[in-house]
Nucleic acid binder design. Structure first.
Lengths: 146, 146
DNA sequence: TTTGGATAGTTGCACAAACAACTATATGCC
DNA sequence: GGCATATAGTTGTTTGTGCAACTATCCAAA
């Protein structure tokens, strides 16, 4: 039997992701105000490179849940901004390894602070245990659909 | 004191909205498979017009959480697809009222069924009470930031 | 009644996403 | 070794988003 837990009036926000749109806009504004000239999408690529530098574009696709053309162009733009550098792999000439520049390394601390600030803005008034449940649900949703 | 409930490793999915991205992609695929040639964004406009037909572009901005240029172009494209029609308001000549065509009225049932199906896919294995908490949290997040 | 500010909508630009089609390289199998 | 197939990345096209600048209209106060 279908678990018909959704009435029609409740579909909308879940599908359109209004909450995450709001979070992304808020963070983008904080970047702009701070004079950091990067987009949220570019930041999301840097985020994974800060965790592990020198990974391939394909690995960035998996990590950021984007397709290959999207990563190609994000890396293009990050390269123009002098934030990353493509380095051809020596083992496999199909692969580009993406490395952070010194300039990008410097961005980590500031942008991460703004991201945490944004989440604190977002979650004001939400008890921690409900946040945990929410994260858990969103993780299952992602796993169900990815 | 700041409610520092976020460790760095947990930032990412919340900000990038991976779950809602996954939901939107799944629904888009269902539209495509069903031969329905509309985008999720166009659907989100129709969604509000099905609830109330003949509202202004500004009201669509508020309802869909988009800015005016985005709605201008979505309405442009919906008009090209013969799904809506701009009708100048008689009271206030700045305003366009947006009306569904008969063709768009016909889309409601099918697309809503696919949307519900998508949410059922997404929420498989999630207890209803956790879904409720998740919705509640996302609503607060939206209200905190909008 | 005029004028200044607010509101509704449009346009231009830069950036991003999804899909399809493409090139180049690697790998596995005969 | 040679060929089919898979993988990594790029390019073109359409669509959507966010911002700034713009036009047209409305409204309210002097």
């Amino acid at each position: 039997m279908p678990n018909n837990q959704f009435k029609r009036g409740e579909l909308y926000s879940f599908i359109t992701g209004k909450a995450s749109t709001a979070i992304a806009r808020r963070l983008q504004k904080k970047f702009n105000t701070a004079g950091l000239h990067i987009t949220i999408e570019q930041w999301s690529v840097l985020y994974h490179l800060w965790k592990q530098d020198g990974i391939s574009q394909q690995e960035l696709c998996n990590a950021t849940f984007r397709d290959k053309p999207s990563i190609t162009r994000l890396v293009d733009n990050l390269e123009k901004l002098n934030l990353v550098k493509r380095v051809p792999s020596e083992n496999d000439r199909r692969i580009n390894l993406i490395f952070l520049t010194r300039q990008a390394q410097k961005l980590q601390e500031d942008t991460m602070a703004l991201a945490e600030e944004t989440l604190n803005d977002a979650l004001t008034g939400v008890p921690a245990d409900k946040v945990d449940i929410c994260k858990e649900v969103l993780q299952i949703v992602y796993d169900n659909l990815k």
